[in-house]
């Protein structure tokens, strides 16, 4: 899904409660991580909630990155689902070209990636960008 399609869905949903309900549903539909992947190696540093991130390289061509993740907080899990809609199965260049901050702003979710939340989700965005940068270089 593109930012435009997501934004359209969010607009259609109207009030914040409906949007959050949709976000929570997106999180519930996220494919689960294995127990083994809920380890420190996949954990993204955060303060309030826990976040895990795994990725698979799909050789292609073109080479793309597939992301999988989880959180113990429902809303964060929904945000992860939105983030994956935007970044998963894309080439490193496509991922690095994305302005994730303004995408979340368009969806009215910008407060969730602010420094203040320190929720691991912010760190996850950074981790995805690092992964894309590493894969582009290799």
């Amino acid at each position: 899904m593109t930012v435009d399609e997501l934004a359209e869905t969010f607009e259609f949903l109207g009030d914040w409660e409906e949007r959050y309900r949709y976000l929570i549903d997106l999180g519930r539909k996220l494919p689960p991580l294995s127990d083994a992947e809920h380890d420190d190696a996949h954990k993204v540093r955060g303060c309030m909630s826990q976040v895990w991130l795994a990725h698979d390289v799909q050789p292609g061509p073109p080479k793309t990155l597939h992301f999988r993740g989880d959180s113990d907080a429902h809303i964060v899990k929904g945000l992860i689902a939105v983030l994956f809609e935007l970044t998963s199965d894309k080439t490193p260049d496509e991922i690095l070209a994305l302005d994730i901050g303004s995408a979340f702003e368009r969806l009215g979710l910008e407060s969730h990636i602010s420094m203040n939340r320190r929720n691991g989700f912010y760190a996850m965005v950074e981790r995805i960008q690092q992964m894309a940068a590493t894969e582009r270089g290799s």
Binding site: W16, C47, M48, S49, A73, H74, I75
Partner: peptide, 22 residues
């Protein structure tokens, strides 16, 4: 049913300021 961060996020939308975390 909800993580403290979920609670804090929804309360924030309702104008209620609380703390969540350790």
């Amino acid at each position: 049913d909800a993580h403290p961060q979920d609670i804090g996020s929804i309360l924030d939308m309702e104008g209620v300021a609380i703390r969540t975390g350790h």
